[in-house]
Every structure is written in structure tokens, then in C-alpha cells.
């Protein structure tokens, strides 16, 4: 090694904790989590709500399945998806289904409102605060007034009602697009400098947005693709749409 003055100086000594300086046992522990990729997206309209997810299931760079559903119609006009660590997702949805069943047993078949479902899910998640379900959870349906509603949760149960939310691998790709297209962020009425007023979108417009979000996410994210499953909740029930996505 040459210094600026042209004199040869020895390299600096290795720090003591450097592996080659001192061989020390490497602590090794079982990691109970994995990331199974995929992405989900919920949007609420005036009298409907949609919850969509891709059907690709991955670990690392492998595609485990091209056709694994992760958005579920659990009854009472509630659709749910938990994206992240697939085993926790399965466990959470299973527990919520069970909770809903017991609600029907105990409350004489009463329909569970979406807000009550949301609070219930908070308890399921927070109950494992110190060994969390590693998932981003979104539920969608209609509220007590028949208006479209989407609730989203963090892994330990903090939640919020929103107009739209993307979760999972490509959430950061889709969310800004949604801010702009659903909540009209950074949109102005031409010539006036005023913000574009927020209006409800139709189902057709929302489905278009969902499809565009997923085709774009598929282009840019390796853990997203194969198939797109959209569950649409209206007062008439839950409808399912399926569209192919690129499989590369």
C-alpha cells in the first residue's frame, strides 16, 4: 500500500472481532419465519369493496406454486387476506374463521359487522405481540351503512380503516400509485391550483386500477405474478374474478 508521500505503509491490523483474526463459535438459531412473497390490495368504493391478491407463492428465488389463493371469503360479506409469512397467514385466517363460527354460535347467527371483525383481528394479532404473526393483514367488506370499507393491520394488530391499502412484497410499488389514482394525491384542477376533489370510483374503474397495479408490480417485482384473484363485495354478496399474470 502506498501513501500519498510515496512511502510504503503497512495495512491496518485486522479488528479483533474479524472472523479471520479470531475463530469464535458462530451462534446459530432456528429462524421460525420465512417470506413467501406475493402482494395484496384492497380498495373501498361507495357501495362495494374489493380485495385482490396474486397467486404466486415463493421462498427465496423459487416459485413454490403458481396457483395458491391467499384472499378468502369467510362469510358475512367479509373477505380477508394476510400476506407475508404464509404459515402465519394460514393460521391467522383459520383462527378468524373459528372466531366467526363461535360468534354465530353464541350470538344466534348474528352477522358480524366489519368493524367488529376488525377489532377481533386486532386481538388475534396482539395476542401474539411477543411472537408475532409476520403478516400484513387486510380485510374488506361493507360497513353498517352499506358503504365500502377496508381495514388494514400491522403484524401486531394496530389497525385503521382506509379507502385503499396495498400490502406485501410490492406494497411500496403499488401504494403511491393508489394515493394518486384513488385519493387523487398531487392532482390539481387545471389552471386553478386547487386540489382535485375526491370522488368515488365505480367498480369497473377500481377493477381496472387493481389489474394495472398487479401487471405493473409483476413487471418490477420477482415475487409477484402468475395469477390475480379479485374478490368483490357488494350488497348482493361476494364475486370472484381471476386474471392471468405473467409467469416469468
Amino acid at each position: 500500500m502506498k501513501s500519498c508521500s510515496g512511502k510504503t505503509v503497512p495495512p491496518p491490523p485486522l479488528p479483533l472481532e474479524h472472523p479471520s483474526a479470531m475463530s469464535q463459535p458462530i451462534e446459530h438459531q432456528f429462524n421460525p419465519y420465512s417470506d413467501n412473497g406475493g402482494t395484496i390490495l384492497g380498495i373501498a368504493g361507495e357501495d362495494f369493496a374489493v380485495l385482490a391478491g396474486d397467486t404466486r407463492h415463493t421462498t427465496d428465488y423459487s416459485i413454490n406454486s403458481r396457483s395458491e389463493s391467499k384472499v378468502f371469503d369467510v362469510g358475512d360479506g367479509i373477505v380477508i387476506s394476510a400476506n407475508g409469512f404464509a404459515a402465519d397467514s394460514t393460521a391467522l385466517v383459520k383462527r378468524f374463521r373459528n372466531s366467526l363460527k363461535w360468534y354465530h354460535f353464541n350470538e344466534n347467527e348474528k352477522r358480524l359487522s366489519l368493524s367488529a371483525a376488525a377489532r377481533n383481528i386486532q386481538h388475534l394479532l396482539y395476542g401474539k405481540r411477543f411472537f408475532p404473526y409476520y403478516v400484513h393483514t387486510i380485510i374488506a367488506g361493507l360497513d353498517e351503512e352499506g358503504k365500502g370499507a377496508v381495514y388494514s393491520f400491522d403484524p401486531v394488530g394496530s389497525y385503521e380503516r382506509e379507502q385503499c391499502r396495498a400490502g406485501g412484497a410490492a406494497a411500496s410499488l403499488i401504494m403511491p400509485f393508489l394515493d394518486n389514482q384513488v385519493n387523487f394525491k398531487n392532482q390539481y384542477v387545471p389552471g386553478t391550483g386547487e386540489k382535485r376533489p375526491i370522488t368515488y370510483l365505480s367498480v369497473e374503474e377500481v377493477v381496472k386500477l387493481v389489474r394495472d397495479s398487479f401487471t405493473s408490480a409483476t413487471e418490477r417485482h420477482i415475487h409477484v405474478g402468475d395469477g390475480l384473484e379479485i374478490l368483490i363485495v357488494t350488497k348482493d354478496g361476494v364475486r370472484r374474478e381471476y386474471h392471468e399474470l405473467k409467469r416469468d
Binding site: 421460525p32 413454490n64 406454486s65 395458491e68 404464509a86 404459515a87 394460514t90
Partner: peptide
């Protein structure tokens, strides 16, 4: 071993 399940 993680309890991760899938079908294909």
C-alpha cells in the same frame, strides 16, 4: 418445518 403449506 416452518408449517408453510402450498399446493401445485
Amino acid at each position: 418445518l416452518l408449517g408453510v403449506t402450498y399446493s401445485s
